[in-house]
Design a binder for these strands. Structure first.
Length: 105
DNA sequence: TATATGACGGACG
DNA sequence: GCGTCCGCCATAT
């Protein structure tokens, strides 16, 4: 296969993982990359979500639980609408289904 | 072709 | 817990 198709397949795989997130479920860029089979490529996940993919992008935060979206306020609002506790631009809760935000206190 | 810049993350102090 | 540094990958200039 060509590099282009391989990359396209990889990107699609990442987007599929994000699409699989249920309401109230929050995960990290790194975990998405990992589950999608591209460990270490957290930055790539962020880039994909930034390109306006049709996926629940607001359910993805960074490893520290911080909301990195351009419009963090919007992301916070969407998360709260699903019952996720966001404090000072950060996810304080670890509700989540299969994917977990590593945030312990 | 080279450099800079992000929706990142881990290691370190 | 925070700031800095470096590695990571794709785009933009």
């Amino acid at each position: 296969v060509t590099d282009a198709t391989a990359a396209a397949r990889r990107d699609r795989r990442i987007l599929d993982v994000v699409r699989a997130l249920h309401p109230g479920e929050v995960t990290t860029y790194g975990d998405v990359a990992d589950v999608a089979g591209s460990p270490g490529r957290a930055r790539l996940v962020g880039h994909l979500l930034a390109t306006g993919a049709d996926v629940p992008w607001w359910r993805v935060v960074d490893a520290a639980g911080r909301l990195r979206a351009v419009d963090a306020a919007d992301q916070a609002a969407r998360l709260r609408a699903e019952g996720v506790v966001v404090v000072d631009g950060r996810v304080r809760d670890a509700p989540l289904g299969r994917f977990r935000v590593r945030s312990d206190s």
